[in-house]
Computed example of a mutant assay.
Amino acid sequence: MARSCEIVLALLVAAAMASPLALAYDPSPLQDFCVADKASDVFVNGHVCKDPAQVTAGDFAFSGLQNAGDTANAFGSKVTLVNVGAVPGLNSLGVSMARLDLAPGGLNPPHTHPLATEVLTIVDGEMYVGFLATDGTLFARVLSKGDVFVFPKGLVHFEFNFGARPAVGIAGLSSQNPGLIRVADSLFGASPAINDEVLAKAFRIDAATVQRIKAQFATKK
């Protein structure tokens, strides 16, 4: 009996110690929906819920993904993001999506989504896509219509269209607001600017080269 009591006590202690870890995760929704109230000036981790009596079907809808994005830019790419900013009804649901358009030779530059894993499906054309693991290993392949590729949360990844016709992809992301950090933009186009010496040493180039690169990104703003 004494042995059994010891085992039960050990299990209770283990469960108590595990509880704070479980509470560290985002809680599941506790109601049918929590539509974002964009008029509220209350700051929370996410968005304040709109009064349910004021919610309409339009809070859960978005129109426009059937339209090609404008790729007439330096990268030849356009991302149309459908996050909580576009669909208030996504608030607290932990998902969003995006359309990616790439012109021939177009690139969605190396970037990360700090808050989300991404699943990309090619709906037209071909893309060369890939991501970098934390040890520097590149996982990449060419995708055709109907192919799917996963970019793990927070890892640097890219999409490139080497074909002769436009390519289109639809992505699902595991956050209502996945976030976006473009690697080159964040380093060479930061405001205020990162010290030239820091970038020169990091990239093993001279300060004059850093300044020339910074000038390229300054023209994109």
Rank of each mutant, 00 (worst) to 15 (best):
A86Q: 13
G125D: 13
A39D: 06
T134E: 10
D124Y: 11
Q216K: 10
L23H: 04
T80F: 05
V82D: 05
T219Y: 02
D124E: 13
I194G: 11
L65G: 12
A103S: 13
V8F: 01
S186T: 12
L93A: 02
G89E: 08
T117K: 11
V123T: 15
I213D: 07
P29M: 06
D41L: 01
Q31P: 01
V48G: 01
L132A: 08
P29Y: 07
A140G: 09
G106S: 12
A167K: 04
V198G: 09
A103E: 09
Q211E: 13
A207D: 15
P29V: 06
E159W: 03
A15L: 14
R165V: 15
K220M: 09
H113A: 13
L102N: 13
C34Y: 03
F131D: 10
I213M: 10
N67F: 08
N91H: 01
F162E: 02
E197T: 15
H157K: 02
H47W: 11
G58E: 15
R212A: 09
G76D: 01
A140L: 05
A208K: 14
L102F: 13
V123K: 11
G64K: 11
T71F: 06
G76V: 00
K145P: 14
G106H: 10
L115G: 00
E197I: 13
L93M: 01
T209G: 00
A74M: 02
A103V: 04
C49N: 00
D26P: 09
P109N: 05
G163R: 12
T209M: 01
L12F: 08
D185A: 06
F62L: 07
N83R: 02
V13Q: 07
P52R: 04
F131G: 10
L132E: 04
S92G: 00
L12D: 08
H113Y: 12
K214G: 07
Q216A: 05
V168F: 01
V150E: 03
L30F: 05
T80E: 05
G189H: 10
T80Q: 08
Q176S: 04
D26W: 04
L90D: 04
L180G: 14
I205K: 09
F162W: 03
E6S: 00
F160P: 06
I170L: 11
K214I: 08
D124W: 08
G189N: 07
P166E: 12
M127C: 11
F162N: 03
Q176F: 00
F158K: 04
K38Q: 03
A14F: 10
H157T: 00
D147S: 10
G169K: 09
V13P: 00
R99F: 14
E118R: 12
L138D: 11
A167E: 09
S19F: 15
C49F: 00
T219R: 07
F131K: 07
